[in-house]
Design a protein around this nucleic acid. Structure first.
Lengths: 195, 195
DNA sequence: GTCTATAAGCCGATAGAC
DNA sequence: GTCTATCGGCTTATAGAC
């Protein structure tokens, strides 16, 4: 049997996560009180504890959900073709995915230090495994002679930092579309690693 | 007349700034209490207000001091030679300066949202003027035909994000020295923008 | 499922003694 | 220059009514 459709729980639960995401991104985890989240949802503070054991779980669930969704989306990427084709797809995917979720990306980078050690370790493992997917493409290109990559780990970190950086300045409706930005970044990444 | 040497004020004042820098970098501005800063310095909380009007001023002074020192250090850079030579000096300077001050760099990027609007505006102006110095080099190289830079603003943001990213993973005593890292990054930046 | 009330404690900042 | 004591208010989380 399916659950009763449209129960208060089904409506309120996602609102809690959305409110926490929005407020954590805007003001930072430590600066946001459970009362502020409750007010954003439109309930009293006690109600929040029906949906989360504590404030830390709210943050961890947001970060872990974001990383899981990122990996799942990347799983759908076409992995055929040569290393350059795979790298171009990665660059366009990474920029597009990040530009579409500025708040989740922001807290995924900014709030790591507010995780408990156990939660931090889990999130770091997910992040590392995403980075490894890019490194694998760079290593394959270097092995085939298509790429010039003296140090694949440093090249990976450099490319990721460069691509993720778009979220710090990009604003929809500005001078460039997301596709324009992806074109410009792919041009730079391609030139930086091509043999 | 010079002030009395080694007064308590001369000793305590820098300790307050250092303690605030260390704790803000480690736990975040919002998560650090004035009591925690006082304990780190080794005084009681009331004493802190002899050195700062409030907690916000502690943060603003750290960020504004960091940006001013960065600009002053960059002012000392050799600006002779062609665009490629100037760009290489910028890359090596930026990486070296940032690797030497990981805590100041960290809070300069992470704590912007905890500034009051007035203070944020001032810091953003300083940051923009630093970015403009890199953009001027890229524009000069494009004008002389040495560089391929379709959009100088985006190239500026991409290079800065890539270079500053070293602070998220670099650890002294690791596999690579700061000079090794600078060599690898200069190789990538040079290839990304050279015509 | 949501509410109110409350526990126990920390917050930034100030006043005034020494 | 540093201390202690204190103000009013905010914090996370829980208990129990409805």
């Amino acid at each position: 049997m399916a659950r009763t459709q449209g129960s208060h729980s089904d409506i309120t639960r996602p609102k809690v996560a959305e409110a926490a995401l929005r407020l954590f991104a805007r003001h930072g985890y430590a600066a946001v009180s459970m009362r502020a989240i409750a007010a954003e949802v439109g309930v009293q503070v006690g109600t929040l504890y029906h949906y989360t054991p504590d404030k830390q779980a709210l943050l961890y669930d947001l970060l872990s959900g974001h990383m899981a969704a990122l990996m799942a989306a990347h799983d759908g990427l076409d992995q055929t073709g040569d290393a350059a084709a795979r790298l171009e797809r990665f660059v366009r995917f990474h920029i597009g995915y990040h530009l579409d979720r500025p708040e989740a990306v922001f807290i995924a980078y900014m709030e790591l230090r507010n995780l408990t050690l156990a939660n931090f370790t889990r999130i770091e493992a997910l992040r590392r495994s995403y980075e490894d997917r890019l490194e694998a493409v760079l290593t394959a290109g270097a092995a085939s002679g298509a790429f010039h990559v003296p140090d694949s780990r440093i090249a990976t970190m450099a490319v990721i930092a460069m691509l993720t950086g778009v979220t710090t300045w990009y604003r929809p409706g500005g001078r460039l579309t997301g596709a324009d930005v992806a074109d410009l970044y792919w041009d730079m990444v391609c030139r930086a690693v091509t043999a």
